[in-house]
């Protein structure tokens, strides 16, 4: 029943099954779907999948960068090396921490703002643009900007000490593992809220008012209405946001590279900065590829699990 008024971008994105209900067997020639697929598929397979396979292959070699040089096959050596490499584990932990600290606020705050903006009003588009502004700004620019804001003599310290009178404003945010991760997460949240807000806003427009009104009649308070009516209705959107943010969280790179460079002493290294260092500073592409493959596998499994989770709920509703 909720079906036809769902926020479409997001709802079916996470549930391939949705297509199944509406799909009809077409009698059109068997070749038709492939004609539709062809242009994108050719590009995708040629320029993304093939290099992916090559990168995967590299991870089993002591890869020599030079064109024409022979590389030595070393089996799983690069992978066992990662397992025994403390910096790899720290990078994995930091990527995980980033994901864990930056994803929930983006979801909660994004949803909160979307709820506040749900009602149509003249100011709504203005707020929408303001909150979305960070999303459209490049990662390089905002990373430099936040490095600058979190500098010892930056605005954050000034605001904490002289405006809010919390502490003496002498925190060196970017010099310690945890404070630096907080600064990096703050950037992630600040930049990401607008994106999740937009998806939720779209989803909320699809929640039938009749349902909410019925809930009001039943005497449900705000929280109950949210929990019983709104939340189930935006569940697919929620799923989509979670999956995309988790993928993005594990792939954090530019902000760390530009804000701390993985320092001090490798304390804030995340998986991708470590991979980048191995590949492009030490020219150890085999090892870099192995790290990338491990990351991809982790992210893929996590995403599959989440999609299954949210899809499962979806089917229950039918």
């Amino acid at each position: 029943m909720i079906d036809s008024t769902q926020p479409q971008v997001v709802r079916a994105a996470v549930s391939p099954v949705a297509a199944r209900t509406t799909r009809r067997r077409r009698r059109a020639g068997r070749a038709t779907p492939y004609l539709f697929l062809a242009p994108a598929l050719v590009l995708f397979v040629g320029l993304i999948v093939y290099p992916m396979v090559r990168a995967f292959q590299m991870s089993f070699y002591d890869w020599k960068v030079l064109a024409g040089a022979t590389s030595t096959f070393i089996g799983f050596d690069n992978y066992t090396r990662a397992m025994g490499d403390p910096v790899f584990w720290r990078g994995l932990a930091n990527s995980g921490v980033y994901m864990a600290l930056s994803v929930p606020p983006q979801i909660v705050l994004g949803l909160l703002i979307a709820m506040l903006l749900k009602a149509k009003s003249p100011s709504q588009p203005v707020y929408r643009v303001l909150f979305y502004l960070p999303v459209v700004t490049s990662w390089v620019v905002v990373s430099l900007l936040f490095k600058y804001l979190f500098a010892d003599k930056g605005v954050i310290n000034w605001a904490l000490a002289d405006v809010l009178h919390l502490g003496d404003g002498s925190t060196s945010w970017l010099s310690g593992r945890w404070t630096a991760l907080i600064a990096i997460c703050a950037l992630g949240v600040w930049k990401g809220i607008g994106w999740s807000m937009m998806i939720f806003l779209a989803a909320l427009q699809g929640v039938p008012e009749s349902l909410e009104e019925a809930a009001v009649m039943d005497g449900a308070n705000r929280w109950q209405r949210f929990r019983v009516v709104t939340l189930p209705a935006i569940r697919p959107a929620l799923g989509f946001v979670v999956v995309m943010l988790v993928i993005g969280g594990f792939n954090v790179f530019t902000s760390v590279l530009l804000m701390t460079g993985g320092g001090p002493g490798g304390q804030t290294e995340v998986l991708l900065t470590y991979m980048y260092r191995q590949a492009f500073t030490n020219l150890d592409f085999g090892y870099g590829s192995a790290i990338a493959v491990i990351l991809t596998v982790i992210v893929f499994l996590l995403s599959l699990a989440q999609m299954r989770l949210f899809r499962g709920g979806d089917e229950e509703e039918r």
Partner: peptide
């Protein structure tokens, strides 16, 4: 299968593809 493959494209770190892509 194809759709899964397209999804994997979302998850691979772009930096790692740069060398093979450059050769290509």
């Amino acid at each position: 299968l194809l759709f899964r493959l397209v999804l994997v494209g979302l998850m691979v770190p772009a930096m790692m593809l740069i060398i093979p892509q450059f050769i290509l």
